[in-house]
Amino acid sequence: MSNLLHVSSSPHIRSQSSTTTLMSDVVIALIPATAWGVYKFGWHAFWLVMACVISSIATEYAYQKLMKRPVTIHDMSAMVTGILLALNLPQTFPIWMAVVGSVFAILVVKQVFGGIGQNFMNPALAARCFLLISFGAQMTDFAVDTVSGATPLALIKNGTGSVEAILAGDKLTVTDLFLGNIGGSMGEISTLMILIGAAYLLIRKVISWRTPVMYLATFTVFMGLFGGRGFDLTYLAAQLCGGGIMLGAFFMATDYATSPITKNGKLVYGVALGLVTGIFRIWSGSAEGVSYAIIFCNLLVPLIEKVTLPRFFGQGVTKNAK
């Protein structure tokens, strides 16, 4: 036999999953929250999602073509960034500003640092913060039916009396917060829809439970201790369901590139996020704090990874130590 066979280093088989399948799963998991936002807010919300997705993908494509790098838009990660950014915007947000945000996310936060896996901040969140700084008024305009309304968290933060009463003043209950019958960024409003997507990711083992569970648990305890309302269940439920923390915990804090790779690191990272988010929500000027908390903790990741290196199998075992 003269023709030579293929030779390579083992293993000679590979699993079916790829970056594309993982990112596709994230896209699938984002469908409920996205669909709910579009259902609640109408066509403009839909066009916002489309604008973010298309401009994210187009930016990645254009940059890679320009730099003569392999084009990686098929890995779906740009699409994920686009959707996530859209979900972080108020439904009235101008399309052109959304496009600016998408270009910033992909170009400045992701590609300039080397593309997928190399960015040290979550692109969608960094872009959200960029937009908040650049277009503060539009980013906090949660008007529904032309009645400008504050988010439940802002109401609670600035209101007096019981949480129930404050919510009731806006004809809201905690159930509304959970289901998503509230104002807010279009993908953050429905805790239920986010949890459906999160369950899908957990079942498919795309994300680990470690960071989100630790994040939410730490945050809840922190708010109970320092929120000024004690362990008032309505208050804590409103804090969990009324803002960006659910989307943040399951879809942003679990972003691979910007979270620790070690198992214990994921736990530590979750705790750090819970603490920082609590601090921001209680003592900062804004009622929100998830985005800043996550991009701040993104910066801690290398350190967390360093101190949470796992023990290797059989570490410390010596001869005759049975």
């Binding site: 590979r14 993982l22 080397g114 691979y256 590139a257 198992k263 290196l309």
Partner: peptide
């Protein structure tokens, strides 16, 4: 078919699957 030869390597996305499967507890 040599499945390995057909695959293109891309950037590490830090997903941590290698950490989960390593029987020696490595990263």
């Amino acid at each position: 078919k040599d499945v390995v030869a057909e695959l293109e390597t891309s950037n590490c996305i830090n997903c941590g699957r290698c950490v989960n499967v390593c029987p020696s507890g490595l990263v």
